[in-house]
Write a protein that binds this DNA or RNA. Structure first.
Length: 201
DNA sequence: AGTGCGATTGACT
DNA sequence: GTCAATCGCACTA
C-alpha cells in the first residue's frame, strides 16, 4: 500500500535548537527514494545531542567523521556504529556549531515489502525499531552522509502523515556520559518505539 | 603503529 | 540476562 506523501519540510520549518528539533521531529515523516524503491516512515523516537554535550560526537570538535554535524540544521549525519550498523541523524543549530538529533525508530509507512526484504524479517514492529534497524530498512548508509534533507534530493523530511500522540521524554539509551539528561523523545505508547515496554510508556 | 571502545543488534544461556 | 560480532575513529606514543 502506498499512502499520499505529505509536503516536504523546509529548513525554516525546523527548530534551530537540537532539543526542540528532536521533539519537533516526532510524528514527522522520513522518506527515501532509493534505486530499489521508495520507503517512508513516521518518526516515533529521537534523541538530541545538544551543544556542548559530552555524549555527542561533535564534542571532540570537527573531524572527518563528524563534519556533517557541523552543517546547518537539516543535513544528514550518518555514521557507522559498533562496526556493524549505520545510524542516521539530522544536524541541528547553525553552521559550525555541531549538534544533532539521532532518529531511533520509525513506524513504517511506504515500501513495507522492501523494508522486509532489506531487514530479513516479516515482523512489522521490528522493521525500524532501533537506529541500526531503521537505516537498514530505509537503505541509508554512508553515501547519504552530508546530504541536505531540505534540498531536492532522494532523502528528505516531510510533514506529519497523522498527528503524533502524547510525547514522552526520558534519558538517552546506550550512553554513559551525560546519562541523566532527559533528551530522548518518543510517541508515548507506540509499539514502534525501541527499548523495553517501560521506555515506550 | 598500536590500543581501546562505542548514540547496536541478534543469538544464546 | 549475557555476550560476541566487527571496524572506524580518536588518542597515545
Amino acid at each position: 500500500m502506498k499512502s499520499a506523501t505529505p509536503r516536504r519540510l523546509r529548513r525554516a520549518d525546523l527548530p534551530v535548537d537540537a532539543a526542540q528539533l528532536a521533539r519537533f521531529l516526532i510524528g514527522k515523516t522520513l522518506v527515501h527514494e532509493a534505486p530499489d524503491g521508495r520507503t517512508s516512515g513516521r518518526i516515533v523516537e529521537t534523541e538530541a545531542y545538544v551543544v556542548g554535550d559530552a555524549a555527542g560526537h561533535a564534542y571532540v570538535g570537527e573531524t572527518a567523521r563528524n563534519r556533517s554535524l557541523f552543517l546547518r540544521r537539516g543535513h544528514a549525519y550518518v555514521y557507522f556504529s559498533y562496526g556493524v550498523h549505520w545510524c542516521f541523524n539530522v544536524s541541528a543549530e547553525t553552521a559550525r556549531v555541531g549538534a544533532g538529533v539521532l532518529v531511533r525508530a520509525l513506524e513504517p509507512l511506504d515500501g513495507i515489502e522492501l523494508m522486509k526484504r532489506r531487514r530479513g524479517t516479516d515482523r512489522l514492529v521490528d522493521l525500524a525499531r532501533g537506529p541500526g534497524r531503521l537505516t537498514a530498512a530505509m537503505g541509508i548508509d554512508k553515501r547519504l552522509d552530508g546530504v541536505d534533507l531540505c534540498a531536492a534530493g532522494s532523502l528528505w523530511l516531510a510533514a506529519e502523515s497523522r498527528r503524533a500522540g502524547p510525547i514522552g521524554r526520558s534519558v538517552r539509551i546506550g550512553i554513559t556520559k551525560e546519562a541523566h539528561r532527559l533528551l530522548r523523545f518518543y510517541e508515548r505508547g507506540s509499539v514502534f518505539v525501541s527499548g523495553s515496554l517501560a521506555l515506550r510508556n
